[in-house]
Write a protein that binds this DNA or RNA. Structure first.
Lengths: 144, 144
DNA sequence: CTAGGTGCAAAAGGTTTGCGGTTAA
DNA sequence: TTAACCGCAAACCTTTTGCACCTAG
């Protein structure tokens, strides 16, 4: 049944005028297997275990293609390496200073949409990114 | 009366265990003169017109010192060079895709604080950064 | 006097690019 | 068939580092 995912990927690539290649499927698989927001280099390492001949330039190219066709989001925290996230639901990122984990935080179903930011009249929002740093529940417990 | 600013800077540096130097004052002056969120390189270029012997490493060091003592904020948009902002009021940044201007957007005095983000129980927020991309009033008008 | 800061140049990430060969459509 | 893509290596941009000299406290 992973053909379902593969099929969806191919369709998305096609709609964006991009080709379906084995490398792009591998890179997307890597992102779906462990949704831990890996960097390009981490994706490269994981992809290499499956197909050792893949290159880092290709990984960047593939990640770019996935971003272009709307299946993957880039996550930028500070100046460190860009991370990649296959969760396309509206959410923001919480980086734990204690353990380094990045959590996806979804907009609460009820109440005002936390992810909608207000801008003065005349401005129009194209894209909005929220990132929060702090301590996660596990690290907070440890500290007690 | 710029002595007032200089005095405040020195005090802040001292409280953080940092020394007052002419370079740190120059860099801070550059940031205050035009609050247009320059990159380190732009600060470097502007500072050099006053004192041509300043080095880029020193500019980075000074900006770092100013961030450490709470007079300046870093602004990271995408992967481009870090920008520096001497506005320490609670606000977020709006980047105009049309003209490249970065606007400071303040939290509206009334209504729910837009800059406060909700996180699930157990998480504690240390720092929160919001950045929005879109089109500014001037560019929206032009497009009509 | 001396810890901390400066200037210079070299190195270190992270990402992009150029190019000859390969492949999806 | 051919434009798009791959792999490799070199280049690029931003930031950091090492080191000898300098200076604020």
């Amino acid at each position: 049944m992973e053909n379902l995912v593969a099929h969806q990927l191919n369709e998305r690539l096609a709609t964006s005028g991009l080709r379906s290649t084995v490398q792009r499927q591998q890179v997307y698989d890597v992102l779906l297997q462990r949704r831990d927001h890996p960097t390009a280099e981490e994706v490269f390492i994981r992809a290499k275990t499956g197909s050792p001949e893949i290159s880092i330039a290709t990984v960047y190219n593939c990640l770019d293609a996935l971003v272009k066709c709307g299946l993957v989001r880039q996550v930028n925290l500070d100046r460190s390496a860009t991370r990649y996230c296959p969760n396309m639901h509206e959410h923001f990122h919480f980086y734990c200073d204690g353990c380094g984990t990045i959590y996806d935080i979804d907009s609460p179903a009820k109440g005002p949409a936390t992810l909608r930011v207000q801008v003065p009249d005349g401005f129009t929002i194209g894209h909005c990114e929220i990132s929060v740093r702090g301590s996660c529940p596990a690290c907070n417990k440890k500290r007690e």
